[in-house]
Write a protein that binds this DNA or RNA. Structure first.
Lengths: 166, 166
DNA sequence: TGTTGGGGTGATACACTGTAACACTCGGGC
DNA sequence: GCCCGAGTGTTACAGTGTATCACCCCAACA
């Protein structure tokens, strides 16, 4: 995708292993739940999973379009709706963009997104401790949560190391 | 403004005390830091602080416009940039909307937004414990944070109580 | 007094993000 | 064959945010 500068993506890899693994996982999940893993959904997932940086819906549409096939943004949104609904991709609210999910995904709880403001990559971790404390805080406030987003912006370890060695 | 259905806002009030307090705080802060608290900025802050629900930039523009004065969204965005930069209002990323800050604001750390999916009000709390655990998690990941957003959607205490008594 | 320069604002235009509505296809069941 | 539902294509549009330029005001300063 006409992109330089993320050769280190292979070293990073946040546990997802890239597009093939993500697709295999999705196929399995759709079989289990009797869902349709159509070509469009597969292609959208592949496009997102092939990047460590978040992709906008229109980026995806453009990436999938080629002479002979024009993928409209609407279709991409529908596919993304499906994929997010089943936890295969996540929406990054602070960027209006999407990343493929790295975890074998127990239940979507306690997710933390680490967004590097330098290289743009997004890492995904979970923290039961944070989740635990947050649950306590919410209970104290008398608030019953249904979903939560936790996104941190800053500098990732790779970029910190790179700037330190200069 | 021109809004029904939030009569309970007075009972809620999340510690901010409404628009007058928010404006007094802003005036003080701007004096201290030698910043200009212009009419537009004051009006935008007043509009946002007068609501417990988040307002979109275009809502604000419309609320401030009247025969004889037309406030363009662009101007609102500029005022909002100023206000968020100095911690007087916060952006709710999951809603593309803005709320006035309720805290006398030490440093913007550890903020948690509680968004009620029923009544739409937004409460704001801080949790040092969550903050602490999150800091630990980030350190473990080798990530240096510069900003973070933590937004929880669910049902607020008031709505839970109201639905329970039926 | 004039003028110069910067911050704030107004206005228009535009890019990006997301949704509504409707038509079409395709496959399965009757 | 017909119907029906899910998925997709297409167009149009609403909502969100930014770029750009012109203007005003006011303070600084010659």
């Amino acid at each position: 995708m006409g992109q330089t500068m993320h050769d280190h993506a292979a070293t990073h890899d946040h546990g997802c292993g890239g597009a093939p693994e993500a697709i295999a996982r999705a196929e399995r999940l759709c079989r289990e739940r009797d869902l349709q893993f159509t070509r469009l959904r597969r292609d959208v997932l592949a496009a997102v999973a092939g990047q460590t940086r978040p992709m906008g819906a229109y980026d995806i549409a453009e990436a999938l379009s080629e002479p002979g096939r024009r993928v409209a943004a609407v279709s991409v949104y529908r596919a993304l709706d499906f994929l997010t609904e089943h936890g295969l991709v996540h929406r990054i609210a602070s960027r209006n963009a999407f990343v493929s999910c790295g975890h074998s995904h127990t239940d979507g709880a306690g997710l933390v997104f680490l967004i590097c403001r330098n290289c743009g990559t997004i890492d995904e971790t979970t923290s039961p401790e944070v989740e635990d404390q947050l649950g306590r805080t919410l209970a104290k406030a008398g608030f019953r949560p249904t979903s939560r987003i936790l996104e941190v912006e800053g500098e990732c370890g790779a970029c910190l190391g790179r700037s330190a060695e200069e």
